[in-house]
Amino acid sequence: MNKKVTVYSKDGCYYCVMVKKYLDKHGIDYNVIDVSKHLEEKEKMIEATGNKGVPQLKIGEEWVVGFNARKIWEKLDG
């Protein structure tokens, strides 16, 4: 799995914590962007997905909105 993974999250987000724990559990390296502190990155995320909510993951060039373990694994493996 050589795909770059970026997690878009913010403090106080329960599902953001869950997604990071999931990635940690599976030994997946990832970068985190806190959209409450990096508004330009938040706008890029919204433009890419049409969704304002977090967590969102960019895996390679594909996006997963929300914590969906099956979709995350498909994007990592595919």
Score class of each variant (00 low, 15 high):
58 K>Y: 02
62 E>M: 05
31 N>W: 00
17 V>T: 12
48 A>K: 13
46 I>S: 01
11 D>P: 06
72 I>K: 12
28 I>K: 01
54 V>W: 08
61 E>K: 13
71 K>V: 04
28 I>P: 01
23 L>W: 01
24 D>Q: 03
6 T>A: 10
12 G>S: 14
47 E>K: 08
78 G>W: 04
65 V>I: 14
51 N>H: 11
40 E>H: 10
11 D>T: 11
25 K>H: 02
35 V>L: 05
38 H>V: 02
54 V>A: 10
32 V>K: 15
25 K>G: 02
2 N>M: 09
22 Y>D: 05
64 V>S: 14
16 C>T: 08
40 E>C: 00
75 K>Y: 09
48 A>S: 13
31 N>V: 00
19 V>R: 01
13 C>S: 13
3 K>W: 07
23 L>H: 04
22 Y>N: 04
19 V>S: 06
17 V>Q: 06
15 Y>R: 14
26 H>V: 03
29 D>V: 03
5 V>G: 09
22 Y>M: 11
17 V>R: 08
71 K>E: 15
32 V>C: 08
59 I>V: 13
2 N>D: 14
71 K>M: 12
7 V>K: 09
31 N>F: 04
11 D>W: 01
39 L>F: 00
37 K>S: 03
42 K>R: 15
59 I>F: 03
72 I>P: 05
10 K>D: 05
32 V>E: 15
7 V>R: 08
7 V>H: 10
18 M>C: 10
30 Y>D: 12
61 E>Q: 10
48 A>R: 12
53 G>A: 10
52 K>I: 05
75 K>S: 09
72 I>W: 03
28 I>F: 03
48 A>N: 12
24 D>I: 00
51 N>M: 12
13 C>V: 05
3 K>D: 06
52 K>G: 00
6 T>S: 06
16 C>K: 12
19 V>Q: 00
21 K>Y: 02
37 K>L: 11
40 E>W: 00
10 K>C: 13
61 E>D: 15
57 L>T: 14
61 E>H: 12
57 L>Y: 04
28 I>L: 00
62 E>D: 15
52 K>T: 11
38 H>N: 07
41 E>G: 09
12 G>V: 07
21 K>W: 02
63 W>H: 13
21 K>F: 00
24 D>W: 01
43 E>F: 07
19 V>F: 00
23 L>T: 01
25 K>Y: 03
42 K>L: 06
21 K>C: 00
36 S>V: 03
1 M>T: 13
26 H>Y: 10
56 Q>W: 05
47 E>I: 01
9 S>W: 08
58 K>R: 15
28 I>G: 00
69 A>S: 15
50 G>S: 07
29 D>Q: 04
5 V>E: 07
5 V>M: 07
49 T>M: 09
